[in-house]
Amino acid sequence: MASFTHGNITIEVDEDGFMAQPEKWNNEVALALASTEGVTALSEDHWKLVNYLRDYYTKFGVAPMIRKLCKETGFPLKTVYDLFPSGPAKGACKVAGLPKPTGCV
């Protein structure tokens, strides 16, 4: 397990850079994780996406389908990529503190 430090917080992450302990997530952590994705500031749209993911994950224990995410946040996929260049699964989910998706996805 690796960890990285951003500002004054240290986060444990797995081999792919996803949070090792998703329950320790908070807004500051999100900012720190975003920095690893080349996203320096989180806009309102960023937060909308992140919060949606976070809520879904807390409720269902897994990340939502991408199409569902687009539909329910109203962002087309392209916008999601604009917000998080490595995409919804690798980028947005990571920042929202979700663990790495599992299974054949």
Partner: peptide
Amino acid sequence: KGTMLQLSVGSTTGMNSLV
């Protein structure tokens, strides 16, 4: 995150039957 998850939750993706 594979077989163990599938045997406990039902799927390697982490989806339970409701999801």
